[in-house]
Amino acid sequence: MNDCLFFGYNSQPKLIKNEEEIITKPIQFKFENENENENENEKQIKQISSSWISTIFLFKNGKAIEYLNKNDSKQNPKKIQIEENIQKVTVGCWNEAILTKEGNVFAKGEFINSKNPKEFINISSLIEDTNDRIIQDIFSGVYSIYLLTSNQNAYGIGSNQFGQLNFDYETLQKTEKPILMMKNVSKIFSGNSSNHIFLLNSNQELFGCGWNKLGQLGLGKSRKQEWQIQKSTKIQNIPKGKIIDIKCGTDNSIMLIENQNENENPKRKLYSCGYFRYNGLGKNKHTYEFTEIKSSLFENDDNILDFSVGHSHTLILTSNSKLIAFGDNSHGQLGTGDTKIN
């Protein structure tokens, strides 16, 4: 099995039984119950998705296991009983979703299936348009799940408390059946601790909706009093370049832009908007539009390969194999060996 390191809050769920509640330095993760998960240690991890409700490990052989917030006293992992080959998993604060090779999506959660929130159901089969039931990608928010179909249409299911399903809350408070949010969508961007969402259309125009209390949609100061954007709104003044990814935290958003110049190699830069708690990478105030993240931690020859955004902290992987962390560290989630704010 490829190496898997763990650090941070080790309680909900408790992933490593004999360790403290807070793990401040990276330690190697091992699956505890080899009898229940026969040959699990020989499998290669393809993806890990985690929130406080659970953590799901997806392996390259298409199988997955989950550690639940409240499981048995031994906190043993549980095999996910999906017969189809699993391609992707996503875990929000109040939901889980699984995308299979066949394009089906199985999900569970309080806002997905109120009658039986602990059981996976096939939510893609609930899409009214039968020609739109093959799902290409899935994403989790706090209370919602988003689906991108093979026809490039975006659907949402779950809570619409902040307008994150692109509907007026008075018209739609929640739905346990996927509803069409937008057509001609090439990418969906969300976060498992966020109640806002971005949609990139086929013309590379970016739209956002949902919770905007601290400017996390990047709509500018003129829109800062609009806490809930209940209809998808075009994001203006986006930095030039190709949008590679956007990760949404609770109160902020971080965008990865690739600047393409014919005379130079493509350069990737990070831009952020919203509120950065704990002086995140030199920013200690609201930013209502996407602005570049600058830091002495980035060297001139660094390029951003990937990044991850949590509730109030961020991890960045550079081309020089550096892992840069900033933000809230109260549960050791930066892996710096302490719980000091960085």
Rank of each mutant, 00 (worst) to 15 (best):
V89R: 02
N131S: 12
G337H: 11
N212K: 12
Q87T: 10
D338C: 06
N85W: 07
F29W: 13
T318N: 07
K221C: 08
N237K: 09
K242W: 02
R268G: 10
Q12Y: 06
K294Q: 09
A154W: 01
M181N: 08
R223A: 04
R133M: 00
T90F: 00
I22W: 11
N35L: 02
E205Q: 08
E34Q: 13
Q228Y: 01
K63P: 11
L214P: 05
E119V: 11
I98P: 01
R268T: 15
D72Y: 05
L58R: 09
S124E: 10
I65T: 15
E84L: 08
G62C: 13
D338V: 07
I316D: 08
S308Q: 15
L297P: 00
I293F: 12
S296D: 08
E42H: 08
I179W: 03
S330N: 11
L334D: 14
V309S: 04
D3N: 12
S312G: 13
I324C: 10
N265W: 04
Y278R: 15
V309C: 07
L172F: 07
Q204D: 15
G215W: 14
I82P: 00
N279C: 07
S253K: 13
K60S: 03
P178A: 00
I238M: 11
E96R: 12
Q204C: 09
I134N: 04
K283R: 07
G163V: 01
F162A: 02
K221A: 09
G274C: 02
L180F: 01
H286S: 05
G62Q: 11
T287P: 05
H311E: 12
N279A: 05
W94N: 15
L334E: 15
E34C: 01
D132A: 07
N201M: 05
K88C: 01
S50A: 12
K63H: 11
F167L: 01
E20M: 05
T291H: 15
Y143S: 14
D129Y: 05
Q161H: 04
V89W: 01
F167N: 13
A154I: 03
E84R: 06
L200N: 10
N18E: 05
T318M: 03
Q164L: 01
F6I: 15
S49D: 13
N76R: 14
V309G: 02
E299N: 09
G241C: 02
S190A: 15
I145P: 02
Y271M: 00
N122Y: 13
S202L: 06
T318I: 10
F290I: 06
P13H: 11
L334Y: 06
I22V: 15
K70F: 00
E20I: 05
H311K: 14
L281Y: 11
Y271A: 04
N151W: 08
H313I: 11
Q47D: 10
K177E: 02
